[in-house]
């Protein structure tokens, strides 16, 4: 099974519910992920879809160990990473990267673009850092001069490209993209999606794309998980899911997407 990049078994994550914390003692816990099991093959472009509170972002963040699961197993390229601590994870970090939803808050406002992209490279002990930074900028379609700019001097779409450049500069095996187009105008959204599609093709990336919007991932993703209340209610190849959605929730999601077409009538 060498073509698997992830093998996840019975993954459980819970958070303390501070709004219902009693005056004394610990807060009750909310189960956010209720025992998920799935495989991800190398080269897959995985769409993780669901409404707010479905656990889709939590799932992504658990996969790259930005948070620690309560129980379960996460095999990443054959290594068990569910229980590793931060020190043990550090050498593995360059293999799984993340692109964040809000490019404004995920780029340190006090660093220039060049420094932002170089930072992770330096930490992971890469050589030829300046040329790698330039290469990453070029791959996302930004001119070299952008490395001198501060994040607040860029447009939303450009910031998101910087976020992508930072992730791909490390040449990771896996990238998590968490709602990365939801804050963008349709035009920038199309640009970013096309860019990702191109990068997947050229670099052979394995990508997980977390989104609340099924319509943006139709073209990009090869396989889709639909999450509802912490459980995977549908796991299917993209075409199959769109043509023949099995779960009622998937059908409701599809049906609720407003098509730019006045002839679509809502029941």
């Amino acid at each position: 099974m060498s073509d698997l990049i992830y093998r996840v078994k019975d993954l459980r994550v819970s958070f303390p519910d501070l709004s219902r914390k009693p005056l004394f003692g610990a807060a009750p816990r909310i189960d956010v992920l209720k025992g998920l099991s799935f495989d991800v093959a190398k080269g897959d472009v995985l769409g993780i879809v669901g409404g707010s509170g479905s656990g889709k972002s939590t799932l992504g963040r658990a996969m790259i160990r930005l948070l620690r699961p309560d129980s379960g197993s996460i095999l990443f390229e054959g290594t068990e990473i569910a229980e590793l601590n931060e020190d043990e994870l550090r050498p593995l970090r360059k293999q799984f990267q993340m692109i964040f939803q809000d490019p404004m808050s995920s780029l340190n406002p006090r660093r220039r673009v060049g420094g932002i992209i170089a930072g992770p490279l330096r930490l992971q002990g890469f050589d030829n850092i300046p040329s790698r930074v330039d290469e990453a900028l070029e791959m996302v379609g930004l001119a070299k001069r952008f490395s001198e700019r501060y994040p607040h001097e860029l447009s939303g779409g450009q910031r998101q490209r910087v976020g992508i450049a930072r992730a791909i500069a490390l040449k990771p095996d896996f990238i998590l993209a968490d709602e990365i187009v939801s804050g963008l105008d349709v035009s920038s959204q199309a640009q970013v999606l096309n860019l990702l599609e191109q990068l997947v093709r050229e670099l052979g990336l394995t990508l997980a794309f977390v989104s609340h919007d099924l319509s943006v991932i139709r073209r990009l993703c090869t396989r889709i998980f639909v999450l509802q209340k912490g459980e995977i209610v549908e796991n299917a190849p993209t075409a199959e899911l769109f043509d023949n959605p099995k779960s009622a929730y998937t059908r409701a999601l599809l049906d609720a997407i407003p098509l730019p077409d006045p002839d679509q009538v809502w029941s």
Partner: peptide, 26 residues
């Protein structure tokens, strides 16, 4: 709580490194 701190963690920066290089300047 900002994502640039999470992204530094993804990049493999240590806790002390994040406190001094990411948070302190801000």
């Amino acid at each position: 709580a900002m994502d640039y701190v999470a992204s530094a963690q993804v990049a493999g920066r240590s806790r002390l490194g994040i406190a001094l290089a990411e948070i302190l300047p801000n």
